[in-house]
Design a protein around this nucleic acid. Structure first.
Length: 459
RNA sequence: GGUCCCAUCGUCUAACGGUUAGGACAGGUGGUUUUCAAUCACCUAAUCGGGGUUCGAUUCCCCGUGGGACCGCCA
């Protein structure tokens, strides 16, 4: 059996973190089964679809490493086909023109609401004999009796009474196809075998199943995954902060880490927490997906990101870092690259994000040290004397290493009857511009000798 | 309001009739330390409530309760 999956976002806004996870699950299922994963841009809402969002969606997914097979499908290019299927459905008696005006329907809806009754279109035009020569929408003739069953790969058997499914619109008044029609036709044409989408699409699957059956098409497998909730416990909306991929990228989350986090949100494999890309493909299975929604947890994202930053080798980390910095901070000066690569090993130690690495690296990136006033106060006369003494000893050193520096520091500590802090703090402030920062030996060794002396002399 | 769904530590989840209910994140305490971190050790913390079924229920059934999704000529 072949596996064809797809992710079908509409380009009406920036890619949503929930959508990203849906894409990931589709991709994973396809890859695991040696099938294909397609990306289809559902741009049939002409008003709201924007090219910039389309581009953003594609680049976000690429950033995550969820690469689609083939070129992305653009739904609007297939509109003629969608319309022709609508016409076929009319001919076969599965669809009909509806002349009810929007005003009429709104009135009915308001009435239903007032009476606290469920609103379903009253099928007024369903059996109209004569055709009118006025603009009409085309509605699908939904089953009235019986019930429809969907064997959902995540939710299990789902059964609803057909009477609750209204005669939904498949062609708008302007003859453009709606989502229900377009998605069904495209999924059929693309030979999609497995549709993984958010729980909020459950009803749509019941509607679409009727279209498949009317056309005598093979119905794909459905898997409705629970939605991701905001911290408030509601469906994630664009208004929730940190809900788009971009929000995570710009604070310096690494793609592998976010992919791993999303993978574990709603899915699990025993007690395993960290999955390489390959492991996730090998181990992924729809049976491991839970049914209840999960909340976004920033602390967890940061924690996973931290383990990735610490685990990946320094060369790779630098590549991530460089890319991140050039996009969201200031591009790295070529001349600084070797030092930074060499220093990744300790710059990453205190970092949960690439932004943290960037902050740690400021003393290398910037040529001039600016000392914060809080820290400047900590430099007293004794500190200045210690710095001076350190400079003269430091100058004498023929080779620089932790082993050669340590005795110098130690002797200063002894001489001034102080502790490491007494000597280390003024030196760090002079070199880094802050009493916080990487380990002192790392700092001294990462900077050129002349640079060290220059910075120390400025105190 | 109607239809459908969900329910284990604060959070993500494991245990698919038999475990002292496990792990991870967060939180707490202590050790180490070169600031901030990191790290190590330990600790706190959950089966929503009530009925069944069963020798035995987190697990199966029913009823409550709580939460969610959908109810567009959006997708």
């Amino acid at each position: 059996m072949s596996f064809n999956c797809r992710f079908a976002p509409s380009p009406t806004g920036p890619l949503h973190i929930g959508g990203v996870r849906t894409a990931l699950f589709n991709w994973l299922l396809a890859k695991k089964n040696k099938g294909k994963y397609f990306l289809r841009i559902e741009d049939t809402d002409k008003e709201r679809s924007k090219d910039e969002f389309k581009k953003q969606i594609i680049s976000s997914l690429a950033w995550l490493g969820v690469e689609h097979d083939d070129k992305e499908y653009i739904q609007s290019k297939n509109i003629n086909k969608h319309v022709s299927i609508a016409e076929e459905l009319i001919k076969k008696g599965f669809a009909y023109p509806c002349y009810c005006t929007e005003k009429e329907l709104e009135g009915q809806k308001a009435l239903a609401k007032r009476k606290k009754l469920p609103f379903v279109y009253n099928r007024k035009c369903r059996d109209l004999k004569e055709k009118k020569d006025v603009p009409a929408v085309i509605r699908f003739k939904s089953k009235i009796s019986g019930s429809t069953l969907i064997k959902d790969l995540v939710q299990g058997d789902r059964n609803i009474s057909n009477s609750t499914i209204e005669d939904f619109v498949i062609l708008r008044k302007d003859k453009s196809p709606t989502y229900q029609l377009s998605a069904t036709v495209d999924d059929h044409e693309m030979k999609i075998t497995h549709v993984i989408r958010g729980d909020d699409h459950m009803i749509n699957s019941f509607k679409q199943k009727q279209i498949y059956e009317a056309m005598k098409w093979r119905v794909p497998n459905f898997a409705h995954i629970p939605l991701i909730h905001s911290e408030k416990g509601k469906k994630l909306s664009k208004r929730d902060n940190a809900s788009t991929l971009e929000d995570y990228i710009k604070i310096g989350i690494i793609s592998d880490a976010l992919r791993n986090y999303l993978l574990r949100l709603g899915w699990s494999y025993k007690d395993k927490e960290i999955f390489t890309k390959q492991e996730s493909i090998d181990l992924f299975d729809l049976s491991g997906v839970g049914k209840s929604p999960s909340k976004l947890d920033m602390a967890r994202i940061l924690s996973i990101n931290e383990t990735y930053i610490k685990t990946i080798d320094e060369k790779n980390l630098f590549e991530f870092f460089k890319e991140y910095v050039s996009k969201y901070k200031t591009a790295i000066d070529q001349s600084k690259e070797p030092v930074l690569i060499k220093s990744m090993g300790f710059l990453k130690n205190k970092a949960k994000t690439l932004e943290d690495v960037w902050n740690n690296a400021q003393y290398i990136v910037k040529d001039k040290v600016e000392i914060e006033s809080e820290d400047k106060k900590l430099i007293d006369d004794l500190s200045k004397a210690i710095i001076k003494e350190f400079i003269s000893e430091y100058k004498k050193l023929s080779s620089l290493s932790k082993e050669t520096l340590e005795p110098v520091i130690k002797s200063l500590i002894n001489k001034h009857k102080t502790n490491f802090k007494g000597v280390g703090q003024p030196l760090r402030i002079a070199l880094v511009g802050s009493r916080f920062g990487p380990g002192l030996y790392d700092v001294i060794l990462s900077l050129d000798k002349t640079e060290v002396i220059k910075r120390l002399n400025q105190i």
